[in-house]
């Protein structure tokens, strides 16, 4: 089994008290360094994380997932010399085994980034709701046309990112809401780093997953908040 002592898993959460136990159990099987970024939860998520013996950074107010990831990245760069960061959704829709396999790929192929994608294999396609699939395809096309982002999955929260890439290209994250995903993809594509996409499975049984119509908010926000500004 590959060594994951140089990997930090960053898990942004917001009112995920019902999912934390599952996420912790799943991640602990594969990773030893996990940090939760509590983005202003009001349901005692932080207390539960501490009770389970994990570290957490707590934002006083809800700033958005982009801000939570940015705090996670800053912690990642400032503390122990981790080589890779994994971004993992706190609502339990990602699978730790996918993250582990992505780390494996990044280390074996010496990649700077591995990005999860729901659309690389037909195996998991039926699990994605039709409307979500449609919106994600439109979003991918939009990102390709306007930002030259050539990822097959526009907004996938599961990523493996190398230290240098985060330090030199990804920070600071200007979009603190869900538009951060497009910004991160844009910066990865513009950085000339070596990256690959990896087929991942996303579970949709959680009602708290992102609303598809939020893509309209993101699209309009992009008009007023360019990624490179």
């Amino acid at each position: 089994m590959i060594d994951t002592s140089d990997v930090l898993v960053i898990v942004p959460i917001f009112n995920e008290i019902n999912n934390i136990n599952f996420v912790v159990r799943d991640l602990s099987k594969w990773f030893e360094n996990i940090i939760f970024i509590d983005d202003g939860s009001t349901d005692n998520s932080s207390e539960l994380i501490q009770k389970l013996g994990f570290k957490s950074i707590k934002h006083l107010l809800n700033l958005g997932q982009g801000a939570a990831l940015e705090s996670g990245f800053e912690y990642f760069l400032k503390t122990k010399d981790y080589k890779y960061a994994v971004t993992f959704d706190g609502d339990g829709q990602n699978r730790a085994i996918d993250a582990f396999n992505m780390i494996n790929l990044a280390k074996n192929d010496n990649l700077d980034a591995v990005i999860g994608s729901r659309f690389l294999t037909n195996e998991y396609l039926p699990e994605i709701p039709y409307f979500k699939r449609f919106v994600l395809k439109i979003a991918s096309l939009y990102e390709y046309l306007f930002y030259s982002i050539d990822f097959t999955d526009a907004h996938n929260g599961l990523r493996v990112l190398k230290r240098d890439l985060i330090r030199d290209f990804l920070l600071p994250i200007n979009n603190h809401d869900m538009a951060h995903a497009s910004e991160i993809s844009y910066k990865i594509c513009k950085s000339n780093c070596i990256y690959k996409e990896f087929p991942v499975r996303v579970k949709y049984n959680n009602k708290k997953t992102q609303n598809s119509l939020n893509s309209i908010n993101i699209l309009i926000k992009n008009l007023f908040k360019p990624f490179n500004n």
């Binding site: 934002h59 006083l60 107010l61 700033l63 705090s71 912690y75």
Partner: peptide, 10 residues
């Protein structure tokens, strides 16, 4: 807010 949170954990 991010600074405060990061300082707190430090």
């Amino acid at each position: 807010i991010q600074r405060l949170s990061l300082n707190e954990i430090k």
